[in-house]
């Protein structure tokens, strides 16, 4: 319960910062002010300034936008394609469709994911869109496998037998009975993949393959901070802390939701 609340608070805070940055930021993230570079946190700049004199708080807020957007769309791709594939594989367990989908999954898992992400973004050009694609592709088998795994035992449950006896089609049973009974798992895994996406985006941006300047991103801020870390530790500490808090928030939210939505616990509450 505690982790659910803490996770929700952290997540909402990051989300709010990202949304607020569309309308207002304390400073301008595009204005360079070299004389004011690498200032420690002060009243004027709550989180200090970076190596180009930009307001760190504003950079963090705008960077949240990039992180969340990339990770969210990547999860969307993974769920949008993975869940139907998993449902189809489970509905045709042991058939050629199931085999094909599972072999495709094995194949994607065989690739060191970030290596391929690096390869794709490097060769097709760095940028937010390619980062989303690279991360999203690896979410597909995660969701396909999870959905199939959750759906298979359901297909042997008696309420599915009853629905089949009643003459319902596999598609209708998948949508009406199977999917609603897997949503808890999907929500939990969704938050986990979301947080992994944020870490992956930060990693890609750090090596220069994510969102390109002038779009601020947390990973890029860390890359810029690397050579300044001895002079002004705050330029490295602040973006990293932002990443940790966001990922932590999402993980706590996921854990909290899992405890809350666990059908075994639910039965007890009823």
């Amino acid at each position: 319960m505690k982790s659910l609340v803490l996770g929700a608070v952290l997540t909402v805070l990051v989300l709010a910062a990202a949304l607020l940055s569309f309308a207002w930021t304390p400073g301008d993230v595009t204005s360079v002010d070299i004389p004011a570079r690498l200032q420690p946190p002060s009243v004027q700049h709550l989180l200090g300034t970076d190596h180009l004199g930009r307001d760190m708080l504003s950079m963090i807020m705008t960077g949240a936008r990039t992180s969340l957007a990339v990770a969210l769309v990547a999860v969307g791709i993974g769920m949008g394609l993975g869940v139907p594939l998993g449902l189809a594989a489970a509905a045709r367990q042991g058939g050629w469709l199931d085999e094909t989908i599972m072999r495709f999954n094995d194949l994607v898992f065989a690739f060191p994911s970030l290596v391929i992400a690096i390869l794709v973004t490097a060769l097709l050009g760095p940028g937010a869109i390619n980062a989303i694609l690279a991360i999203g592709i690896f979410n597909i088998p995660v969701f396909a496998r999870l959905t199939r795994g959750a759906a298979l035992p359901l297909w042997h449950r008696e309420f599915i037998l009853a629905a089949r006896t009643a003459g319902k089609s596999a598609l209708r049973i998948s949508v009406e009975h199977i999917l609603p009974n897997t949503t808890n798992l999907l929500i939990v895994q969704g938050t986990i993949q979301f947080s992994l996406g944020i870490l992956a985006e930060a990693g890609l941006s750090y090596v220069g393959l994510g969102a390109q300047p002038p779009i601020p991103s947390w990973g890029r801020m860390l890359a810029d901070a690397q050579t300044m870390v001895a002079l002004a530790p705050h330029v490295a500490i602040i973006p990293g802390t932002a990443i940790v808090l966001t990922v932590l928030g999402l993980n706590l939210l996921g854990d909290g939701l899992r405890d809350r939505l666990d059908p075994r616990l639910q039965g007890r509450a009823a």
Binding site: A202, Y206, A236, G240
Partner: peptide, 12 residues
């Protein structure tokens, strides 16, 4: 531990 990006941890 799972929330900390390893490259940032490396910088620290």
């Amino acid at each position: 531990g799972v929330a900390i990006p390893n490259f940032w941890f490396a910088m620290l």
